[in-house]
Structure formats: structure tokens, C-alpha cells
Simulated assay, not measured.
Amino acid sequence: MTTIYDFTLPALEGGDINLADYRGRPVLIVNTASKCGFTPQYEGLQALWYQFRSMGLVVIGVPSNDFGAQEPGTSAEIASFCHRNYGVSFPMAARSPVKGPQTIPLFRWLDKECGFLARPRWNFYKYLTNRTGQPVAWFSSVTAPTSDRVTKAVERVILNP
């Protein structure tokens, strides 16, 4: 059975993010963009990461230029923007396609596992996996990372080893 831990992402600042390193931990994957109306959600993602990382949660941003060309920058520009404006300290992947024929394997798998309705239709779709690496919830762009829906889902996967 495939799990989130079977994937590797290119890291924003070089090297790779090997998701196997997070085996046994819940993971929240988010497709992000720097020039989007939802970009302030970086602040909420950072708050969620800060609140729950000591309990095992991993937040990973995956910048994408697929929606409205709202992530046009280089890796260095994206990293600088995220750190400077939102204090992002959670892992960030390099800019990657999350829809269409060039979709990265992780998002192909999320599409297969979560279904058509969960397919990202804009920036800041969120995908939560449990400690066994299986998707348990997804949230659209309009659902803030610090909303009750997201925080309660995170609490459920943290409390259910």
C-alpha cells in the first residue's frame, strides 16, 4: 500500500524532502503561492506548525504556479518572501506542478486517494494524512489553516496513534 512516506519532494532551498523521514507523524501538505489572495494563509500555516509540531505534526508547503501564475518567482525569491513576510519555518518544497499532465507524483497520489472533489482547484488546498500516512481529510482554499475544521482534524490525528 502506498503512503505519503513513499514520496520525495525537491526542497525549496536545495536537496530533497524525503517524506519517509516523517514516518509515524501526521502530515499537512499545502499547495501554496506568493501572489494569491490566500497567501496570508502562510501565517495560519506557521501558527498551526508552531502549535502542533511538538506533538508530531509536519506542515509542508508546495509552491505551485498552476493557478493564475501566482508563484512566478525563483526558489530563492519564494524562500525570501515566505521567511521575510510570514516567518515560515516549516519545510517548503521547490515550485512544482500540482495539476495537469506534469503533476508531481505526490499530488497524483493525493488525487487518486482523495477523489475528484479534492483535486486542487486553486492555491492553498490542504491535505492531512494520519500517522500511517493515509489521507484523512482535505480542505479547500477557503478553509483557513487555523479554522476549527482544520485544527480539530489535526487534533484527531495527533491523538489517535
Rank of each mutant, 00 (worst) to 15 (best):
L110K: 05
L28M: 14
D16M: 12
G44Q: 03
F67S: 10
Q51R: 13
V98S: 02
D16W: 04
G37R: 07
S147Q: 07
M1F: 12
L19M: 03
E77C: 09
L106F: 10
A144I: 02
V27Y: 02
G14T: 07
M92P: 01
R121I: 09
I104N: 12
L159C: 12
T39M: 11
T146D: 15
G15E: 07
F81I: 08
F124H: 09
V157F: 09
G73L: 08
T143W: 00
E71F: 12
Y22S: 05
C114H: 05
V62N: 01
K35R: 15
P101D: 08
N65S: 10
R25M: 03
T143L: 10
H83D: 10
G133C: 11
W49Q: 02
A11R: 15
T8M: 07
P26I: 03
P91R: 02
P105W: 01
N130H: 11
G115Q: 01
E113Q: 13
L110D: 01
I78R: 04
P63L: 04
G73C: 05
N65H: 09
Q134V: 13
N65V: 10
E155V: 12
F38C: 03
W138L: 07
R108C: 03
L48Y: 00
G133H: 11
E13D: 14
A47R: 14
M92L: 15
R121W: 08
L45R: 05
G15M: 08
G37T: 08
R121G: 15
T143D: 07
N85P: 01
S64C: 14
I60G: 01
G44F: 03
G68D: 13
P91G: 10
F90E: 06
P135G: 07
R95V: 11
L159Q: 15
A137G: 08
Y125S: 14
S141K: 00
T132A: 14
A118V: 02
A137N: 12
M1W: 11
I17E: 06
I60N: 04
V157Y: 06
P101C: 04
K126Y: 07
P135Y: 03
F81V: 11
F52I: 00
P105V: 05
P91A: 06
M1T: 13
M1S: 14
E13F: 02
R84D: 13
R23Y: 06
T39E: 08
L12H: 06
A47S: 14
T39S: 13
E43Y: 00
T151P: 08
C36Q: 03
D21F: 01
P26Q: 09
G115V: 07
